[in-house]
């Protein structure tokens, strides 16, 4: 099972985890990214590249399925205006044993951060806004998976 979704709407992490409870699975790894509040943040606006986004996420999911022994893999990423504490991204992997599920989960989110065409804009209380800058550490973490 490979599930890739790009949508404005929220997702249900419980339902996504339940869908990864597949025959033969011994464990499910998952990561849910949420909008980090504080420092006057009012909202995040996520822009993406329709078409390329889906292609990129499908490739990331395919890479994870090829690299680890997975029974299922899910990648969901939202776009549009999101408020603090709301869901942004979900990645999950089911496998017979925990090692593959946990490693694939870490790979999915690390790789997604540097290879899926999304851009975050922070909107602050008072109306100012700024584009989030890419962090070099994210490139380093993603590159580590290629070694």
């Amino acid at each position: 099972m490979r599930r890739v979704v790009v949508q404005a709407a929220d997702f249900d992490t419980g339902a996504e985890l339940a869908a990864l409870n597949l025959a033969g699975a011994g464990g499910i790894g998952s990561f849910t990214g949420i909008v980090r509040g504080g420092e006057g943040l009012a909202a995040l606006e996520l822009e993406h590249y329709p078409g390329m986004t889906e292609r990129a996420l499908e490739k990331i999911a395919d890479d994870a399925m090829a690299r680890w022994d997975l029974l299922g893999c899910t990648v969901i990423h939202r776009f549009g205006r999101l408020l603090p504490a709301q869901n942004i991204v979900f990645v999950g992997a089911a496998s017979a044993h925990r090692g593959d599920a946990l490693a694939a989960t870490a790979f999915l989110i690390d790789w997604l951060k540097t290879s899926a065409p999304f851009w975050k804009r922070e909107i602050f209380e008072g109306g100012s806004a700024r584009w989030v800058e890419a962090r070099p550490v994210d490139d380093e973490v993603a590159a580590a998976w290629t070694k």
Binding site: G33, H48, Y49, M52, K113, S115, F118, W119, K120, D138
Partner: peptide, 29 residues
């Protein structure tokens, strides 16, 4: 840069490309 929806480095050829995109480093996830 992305050429026909694949990331492309400066040396990549653009002949025949239907769609070329320019954007900042990505910040999703």
């Amino acid at each position: 840069c992305a050429v026909d929806q694949d990331f492309a480095k400066d040396g990549a050829m653009i002949a025949g490309a239907a769609e070329i995109a320019f954007f900042p480093p990505v910040t999703g996830g």
